[in-house]
Design a protein around this nucleic acid. Sequence first.
DNA 1: TAATTTTGAATGAACGTTCAATCAAAAAAC
DNA 2: GTTTTTTGATTGAACGTTCATTCAAAATTA
Lengths: 192, 192
Amino acid sequence: MKNNDSNTKQKIVDAAYKVLAEQGYDKTSMKQIAKEAGVAQGLINYYFESKEDLLFQLFHEESCRYSEELSKLSNIPISDKFIHQALQVPKKLVMDHPEWHRLRFELFAIGLRSNRGAQEITRSSKMDREQTINELSRLEINEQINIQGLARIITAVMDGLSLQMMVDPEFEADSAYETFAKMIEIYLSKKE
Amino acid sequence: MKNNDSNTKQKIVDAAYKVLAEQGYDKTSMKQIAKEAGVAQGLINYYFESKEDLLFQLFHEESCRYSEELSKLSNIPISDKFIHQALQVPKKLVMDHPEWHRLRFELFAIGLRSNRGAQEITRSSKMDREQTINELSRLEINEQINIQGLARIITAVMDGLSLQMMVDPEFEADSAYETFAKMIEIYLSKKE
DNA sequence: TAATTTTGAATGAACGTTCAATCAAAAAAC
DNA sequence: GTTTTTTGATTGAACGTTCATTCAAAATTA
């Protein structure tokens, strides 16, 4: 039989990522993706049910890779600089891969209108939040602190700040991240 | 130059808002908008250069309206419940008008690929942030506090949380907002 | 009448998807 | 070992549809 563990499917996903990141979902045609992948147009529909299906599989894969990056947080030792250092990781991810975040927001927009999309997004968000909770529980935290709530806020800040960074090229990310680090530190150290 | 303050243009914008909020940008056709507005298809291109142009004008108008809603914050008296009460306003806006936020995120995705879009978004974000700074400066704040940075974080949280709310219907917004209110309070009351 | 607004059919490009045909390689038959 | 059959990956043209935009003409307004 022909080489069926060829990386054809992966080639298509990679090409799709490249083109989609550049142009966005609706300005990207299957034809373009096929060309980028060096493959016949029809082949994409052999491996993927539809254009949307391709997008969601792509997102799934990329969000897992993203989560793996986040898991490097576990290597940071606990110290009084921990929060500060930990926030550098997602910040660096946005700085280094703005195209991934742009694509992520695009999927949000699309996903909000489709069950499959919403599912994929919810899964990915939950993964990120659990990662955050994991890291937080390495710290000694006052029982009164709502860890779930705090994790939600941290996730929200990461999303919201990356939005601002993408939109405004002059955005001073450092000062914002610094402020937030201080907010978390003070919040966690509060004794009552 | 005749009766150019007829409400025809507004009718189109309103219809566009309704259809776009329901279906999203690329699944919405000019034909649908025209039908919803009760107007011939070609008339839209008489008033608007293009579909994108219509979207951006719509966004401009809606974001101004949104900002006006936010300005109601000024009516809240300063008290020890202020932060808590103030956060209720944007929270209520998301709860009451999820479709506006969905459209907002869609415009983010589109705007990130277009100059005009990025401009419109930056303008709107700046307006929101200035509103926040305005409210914050009504409080007596330690000079060491970075108000600009704090405003960025608040904006980010509002965006990030509304994203989570839209994606996950079971999201417990109250507890997240409550946690954040406490974080701000503690941060502001910190004496050093 | 002249200018402006409105109509909706026409246009042509672009799209996602389908599918019969091709082909190389694996399996089976001899 | 050689031939035949089967498999499924791959091709690219073709299909039917949809779309934003255009435009000549009609209606309205001044």
